[in-house]
Design a protein around this nucleic acid. Structure first.
Length: 548
RNA sequence: GCGCCCGUAGCUCAGUUGGAUAGAGCGUACGCCUCCUAAGCGUAAGGUCGCGCGUUCAAUUCGCGCCGGGCGCGCCA
């Protein structure tokens, strides 16, 4: 996993065992890189943590361990005890530089791990209704979901990304009716959009397309009779748009599942029967209720209405059960915070059929509040009042938009100023990181004729040591970000790496014909920076340009 | 009213299973290209970590109570 830290942990565990005859696990040893360089390269608080168990003062424990560490002088060059009982290590520079060999060998795979143990995970995100264009509010979920999918794959999870298409509810009927009205309008027949209809410009465009293809053919057909056509035509067009917009945003799904197909495969009736058999339901006022309160919900929920129709929840439970039956060990959903009240009832439906709490996890992504002309701008597919994601991407660029959203923790309530988005795109920290990559590439181009270094004993400048230690951290950061599903941790890592490189660049001249030995070693370090930076950017779906 | 989330620099946000002097970007002030890309580097100013109590050797971090903001509480989807 991590060359340096694992070795240090092993030494610490051995020292504790030999000194106190006390066994400590790898996970109990916390190693950190101190903020202040005066505190060495790495530090541990193990003496403080063991104080209670060993019934000794932290300082006494640390002092007792000290001689054991000095036995490893080929690896540890200095040990100091400081503050309330921290043990600070200064390591041999050449051992730190060993990471370069590792990175150059691994290339695109540097940072990859098997932390996920090939657990089969289904990741569902966005799943916006196919009734209008994606808008910037969806971008956060898309950037998060896709980045987490990339992260988890890199960390050894077996990930399938999935989009659930809500094509069975009455919102699709409303879309069909609205499209029909737009088509009639296009044919010159004044037809109002229904009250619950969709007024977005997307349906006007789809009606135009249909008119171009088929002329006024459907004008003469009975409206009720032609509705299924408008429904399927509109659905197909909306879906195609969803797919191409997401692809433009570099978000690809492995599987698209339609809600209608869940009905068609008779999975909904089956799941209702299963819930009945499990004694998880009861009838009340002509409706069938699910006992979701048994699993932490506020109140029980209707799954079959008194009119015989299902609620939205019922096929969704069936859908999630079907995912398990397709062989997934774990289901992860990303849900907008406006749907957080839905979490418990969906989980309850799954748990009611015997699945485990650890098998279904629903992450909330907080709302990104849109600001326009200094005030909140509520987007709505119904009124058609919205800015299309596609337009935003075209103006601000995929990299800037993706980075902007990936850079924030999911539980942050954030404001997204639509007027400033394009203006601020140039100030986006993503360019700082991309520029570092372009600079790296430029150096490597200029230094391509230098011989390859085989050892790195000359790398001892503080800026070089910083880089080596940070590069060494990458695999740990990746698996942590993957397991906690927090891509912003990768952004933090990227900013720090770029900052360290820019600082190094200012102080250390890489190419120097009068000192070829140092130059070739620094070139190797720069190569390692390039590989690490590129791999990190790729995890959040951002390009690593060779030139800028 | 009940539930979930948030409150850290002028603004947008980080803060590593609780750790040493709380950080970054943007903005502000002042320096730095005869040298590998100045989309950069360096220095400085800017904070009662919403408020209070508790747990701990140690709290921005954990618990409880307030205050302020967002969202949700349909036999809609």
């Amino acid at each position: 996993m991590n060359l340096i830290e694992n070795k240090l942990k092993t030494i610490i565990i051995e020292a504790i065992d030999k000194t106190f005859s006390y066994q400590v696990n790898m996970d109990d040893v916390v190693i950190e890189i101190p903020k202040d360089k005066l505190h060495g390269d790495y530090a541990t608080n193990i003496a403080m943590r063991l104080a209670k168990q060993l019934k000794q003062k932290p300082m006494d424990i640390a002092n007792a361990l000290l001689p054991m560490f000095l036995n490893n002088s080929d690896f540890i060059t200095n040990v100091e005890i400081a503050g309330p009982g921290f043990i600070n290590f200064t390591l041999c520079n050449e051992r730190l530089a060993d990471i370069i060999t590792v990175v150059l060998k691994a290339q695109d795979d540097y940072g990859r791990s098997d932390s996920g143990k090939h657990v089969r995970v289904n990741l569902e995100y966005v799943s916006a209704n196919p009734t209008g264009d994606l808008h910037p509010g969806h971008a956060r979920g898309a950037a998060m979901g896709d980045s987490v999918a990339r992260l988890m794959r890199f960390a050894g999870f077996d990930v399938t990304s999935e989009y659930y298409v809500n094509d069975a509810g009455n919102q699709i009927n409303n879309m069909a009716l609205s499209l029909q009205a737009r088509y009639f309008q296009r044919c010159g027949v004044d037809t109002p959009i229904p009250d619950d209809g969709y007024n977005g410009p997307d349906l006007i465009a789809i009606a135009d397309k249909l008119y171009l293809e088929e002329g006024s053919k459907y004008l003469s057909i009975d409206k009720e009779e032609s509705l299924p056509f408008f429904r399927s035509y509109g659905l197909q067009e909306e879906l195609n748009k969803l797919k191409s917009d997401l692809e433009l945003f570099r978000v690809k799904y492995d599987v698209w599942t339609s809600e209608q197909s869940i009905y068609d495969r008779d999975l909904v009736a089956k799941v209702v029967q299963k819930l009945k058999d499990a004694d998880m339901t009861y009838e009340f006022e002509d409706a069938l209720w699910l006992k979701t309160t048994l699993f932490g919900d506020d109140k029980d929920r209707v799954i079959v209405r008194s009119n015989g129709l299902y609620t939205y929840l019922t096929p969704d439970i069936a859908y999630h059960i079907d995912k398990f039956e397709r062989g997934f060990d774990r289901l992860v959903d990303f849900l907008g915070a406006d749907h957080h009240g839905y979490i418990n009832r969906l989980k309850a439906g799954v748990l009611a059929l015997g699945y485990n709490k650890d098998q279904i996890e629903i992450d909330i992504i907080q709302m990104a509040r849109m600001i326009k002309d200094g005030a909140e701008f509520k987007m709505s597919k119904r009124t058609g009042k919205a800015v299309a994601l596609k337009d935003l991407i075209e103006e601000a660029g995929v990299d800037a938009v993706r980075y902007y959203f990936a850079n924030r923790a999911a539980d942050t309530h954030m404001d997204f100023d639509l007027d400033m988005a394009v203006k601020q795109a140039n100030d986006n920290p993503v360019y700082y990181a991309q520029y570092a990559h372009a600079r790296v590439c430029s150096i490597l181009r200029s230094g391509k004729d230098y011989p390859t270094a085989s050892f790195y004993d000359g790398l001892n400048h503080p800026k070089e040591i910083d880089l080596l230690k940070h590069i060494n951290e990458f695999p740990v950061v990746v698996s942590d970000a993957a397991i906690t599903r927090q891509p912003h941790k990768i952004c933090n890592y990227i900013q720090k790496l770029a900052s360290m490189f820019h600082s190094f660049y200012g102080e250390c001249k890489v190419l120097d014909e009068d000192n070829v030995v140092l130059s070739q070693q620094r070139l190797a370090l720069v190569s390692a920076v390039k590989i690490t930076l590129k791999n990190a950017l790729n995890l959040i779906g951002v390009d690593a340009p060779e030139r800028m």
